[in-house]
Design a protein around this nucleic acid. Sequence first.
DNA 1: TCGGCAC
Length: 622
Amino acid sequence: MFTESTRKLARPTRPRYLPPQLRPQNANVVSPDTGAAELTRPRFSRFNLPQPARTTRGSGPRFTNRRNPNWEDEKFDELEVIDDTSEETNETNFDAYEDIPVQASGENIPPPVETFAEIDLGDGLKQNIRKCKYLKPTPIQRHAIPIAVAGRDLMACAQTGSGKTAAFCFPIICGVLKDQLLLACRDGRPVACPLALILAPTRELSCQIHEEAKKFAYRTGVKIVVAYGGKPISQQLRNLEKGVDILVATPGRLVDMIERAKLSLGMIKYLALDEADRMLDMGFEPQIRKIVEKMDMPPPGTRQTMLFSATFPDEIQRLASDFLSDYVFLAVGRVGSSTDLIVQRVELVQEIDKRNHLLDLLRSQKSNGTCIKHALTLVFVETRRGANELERWLSMYGFPAIAIHGDKVQMEREHALRSFKSGATPILVATDVASRGLDIPHVAHVINFDLPKNIDDYVHRIGRTGRAGKYGLATAFFSDKNLPLAKPLTELMKESNQEVPSWLIEYAENSSFSGGGGGGWAKHAAGNFGGYDFRKGIASGNESSYYSSTYNDANAVPAIGGYYVAASANAQTFLGGADFYADPYTLSANADYLVASNANLYPAAPHEYAYSFGSVVASGWD
DNA sequence: TCGGCAC
């Protein structure tokens, strides 16, 4: 077992970009009154709590979006910088993630690095990394980048938002830059021949990756083009003709371009699949197989393939291994790793009551949080039609809501997302089109109006909040339709040290759907939480001979479960200082306000719908 | 079943 604590960590300079999973769990909390760090508090006790003053926002922003005056490009404006206020917090920041588990398996695994400087990424890229304020690699980057730069295939598990886009973009850009020979022999071809292909499951995610990758490749000469449906193909084809080194695409438009003979995959040297488990699920698999195996893509072994996902069920790993050659399996942190920043609530609501229940929830929220400009609420529903209906229903009752789903034309989709992000329409009603990968700042509350069938999707959905070091709230409406989810949901919540309602536990125990839940979670819940190399399962008894590793032993898996406990303990000790009790509605109302103000927020007692709030620790949303 | 993905 390898943990981050085994590595000596250098003191960082400031300002410093702090990726989500590295962000402080406890002591990096500044008291609004004193500006001093509030250190770890004793484990929460409901009846014996300190009483900090309620504070309004505007007191000492902690997380700020800061413009770098030395950097002229607007694209770099949105990067988040955390300004450290004391040496102590520096120390504690690192303590906070010393227990992040890393499991790597495969043969001859390149060891992790501590800094970007240790890797030969090239001057241009390194400069951009600095400009992006990625001063220190995240755990996934520390481990994945050396593996990828060494040319190895990779199957990597890491939560979205943990810096995985950079983890596959840096090695790809670096590889393209170094491959002048390949670039030279490509010249003069009539069809576009990118050297790298990045596939994503939704158009909006492709866009996001493209935007990110462009920053990393700024002024390196590496050409990055994006291709996705819903827009005229002509402009995208023109972009291809102008030259493309790295193509970011959704599957449908990609196939279209290939079949029009405008694009060849014959020179692909790097293939990356983002949200790889989704890309290989039932709906996508044939299309991906077509692209990867039945077009002109070089076979495994002659290209480098990297698969990234937050969840990797066995069956998906099995499919994925067809695309890989002598690959390294890497699991960093835990699946759904942001959940320790998210308070999860489940409410028993019958289908017929859901709309009124939602209205009540939003009303309380509104009456308590009207002054907060950017307290966004993301409501997930099952169907496109349901999204439209709920959008109308909410609008009818005075809540500015907008829907996003696959029935809308691309312009409407993009408008909805923009309108939501800007706060113009602070409620977004979405299907699973918005459940994965999208980085939307300021989502304070995710409401699962309809729960997904699959617990993995639940993990992805609630991961839209609790980002950027802020606490988030996730509320689920559990109806009798969701009985199969009772067990995996209970297990997930327990592992995240959430308060599980007793009725849900009962449902879970009496559930005849013991193994299912539709997804891989129940399987993972045996103690490996998705971070498990399925090859170990089939190589039982033989693993030491085949799966050697420089820093992992074959028995490391249970320790990943151990991290859950560690993370949760952190979350627990962080909490404290309640001054407030509330019924569920008031809770939600205040939760939104408090979350918007970066409050810490937590369940008060087991099996109760009472919650308590800690002091407001920061407010940095303006 | 749904959702996502090209015209």
